[in-house]
Simulated assay, not measured.
Amino acid sequence: MNKPETGYISDYDILVIVDQYDLVAKFDLWNTIEDRVRVFLPPFFKLECNLTVHTSDEVNNTLKEGQYFFTGIKDQGIAVV
Results as ranks from 00 to 15, higher is better:
residue 1 M to H: 07
residue 1 M to Y: 07
residue 2 N to Q: 02
residue 2 N to L: 01
residue 3 K to A: 04
residue 5 E to L: 14
residue 6 T to W: 03
residue 6 T to A: 03
residue 7 G to A: 00
residue 8 Y to D: 02
residue 9 I to D: 00
residue 9 I to H: 02
residue 10 S to I: 07
residue 11 D to G: 15
residue 11 D to F: 14
residue 11 D to C: 13
residue 11 D to T: 14
residue 12 Y to C: 10
residue 12 Y to T: 12
residue 12 Y to V: 13
residue 14 I to A: 15
residue 14 I to L: 15
residue 15 L to F: 01
residue 16 V to I: 09
residue 16 V to K: 03
residue 16 V to S: 04
residue 16 V to H: 03
residue 17 I to H: 03
residue 17 I to D: 04
residue 17 I to N: 05
residue 17 I to Q: 11
residue 18 V to G: 15
residue 18 V to M: 13
residue 20 Q to D: 09
residue 21 Y to G: 01
residue 21 Y to C: 01
residue 21 Y to Q: 09
residue 22 D to K: 11
residue 22 D to M: 08
residue 22 D to Q: 10
residue 24 V to W: 05
residue 24 V to N: 05
residue 26 K to T: 05
residue 26 K to Q: 14
residue 26 K to P: 03
residue 27 F to H: 06
residue 27 F to R: 09
residue 28 D to Q: 14
residue 28 D to L: 13
residue 29 L to A: 00
residue 29 L to C: 00
residue 30 W to Q: 09
residue 30 W to F: 10
residue 30 W to D: 10
residue 31 N to L: 04
residue 31 N to T: 02
residue 31 N to K: 06
residue 32 T to H: 01
residue 33 I to R: 06
residue 34 E to C: 01
residue 34 E to K: 05
residue 35 D to Q: 13
residue 36 R to W: 03
residue 36 R to M: 07
residue 37 V to D: 03
residue 37 V to S: 04
residue 38 R to H: 12
residue 38 R to L: 13
residue 38 R to F: 10
residue 38 R to V: 11
residue 39 V to N: 14
residue 40 F to L: 00
residue 40 F to I: 00
residue 40 F to P: 00
residue 40 F to V: 00
residue 42 P to Y: 09
residue 43 P to V: 07
residue 43 P to A: 08
residue 43 P to M: 03
residue 44 F to I: 06
residue 44 F to Q: 09
residue 45 F to P: 00
residue 46 K to F: 12
residue 46 K to Q: 15
residue 46 K to M: 14
residue 47 L to D: 12
residue 47 L to C: 09
residue 48 E to G: 09
residue 48 E to F: 01
residue 48 E to I: 02
residue 49 C to E: 09
residue 50 N to A: 02
residue 50 N to Q: 05
residue 50 N to C: 03
residue 51 L to W: 07
residue 51 L to C: 08
residue 51 L to R: 08
residue 52 T to G: 12
residue 52 T to C: 12
residue 52 T to H: 15
residue 52 T to M: 13
residue 53 V to D: 05
residue 53 V to R: 04
residue 53 V to A: 04
residue 54 H to P: 00
residue 54 H to N: 08
residue 55 T to L: 04
residue 57 D to A: 07
residue 57 D to M: 03
residue 58 E to L: 02
residue 58 E to I: 02
residue 58 E to H: 08
residue 58 E to N: 04
residue 59 V to A: 12
residue 59 V to P: 10
residue 60 N to S: 15
residue 60 N to T: 14
residue 62 T to R: 13
residue 62 T to V: 10
residue 63 L to Y: 06
residue 64 K to E: 11
residue 65 E to N: 02
residue 65 E to P: 00
residue 66 G to L: 11
residue 66 G to I: 09
residue 67 Q to E: 09
residue 68 Y to H: 05
residue 68 Y to K: 09
residue 69 F to M: 10
residue 70 F to L: 12
residue 70 F to W: 12
residue 71 T to D: 13
residue 71 T to A: 14
residue 72 G to V: 13
residue 72 G to C: 15
residue 73 I to C: 11
residue 74 K to F: 14
residue 75 D to V: 02
residue 75 D to R: 07
residue 75 D to P: 01
residue 76 Q to E: 11
residue 77 G to V: 05
residue 78 I to Q: 03
residue 78 I to K: 07
residue 78 I to F: 05
residue 78 I to H: 04
residue 79 A to D: 11
residue 79 A to N: 09
residue 79 A to R: 11
residue 80 V to P: 04
residue 80 V to T: 06
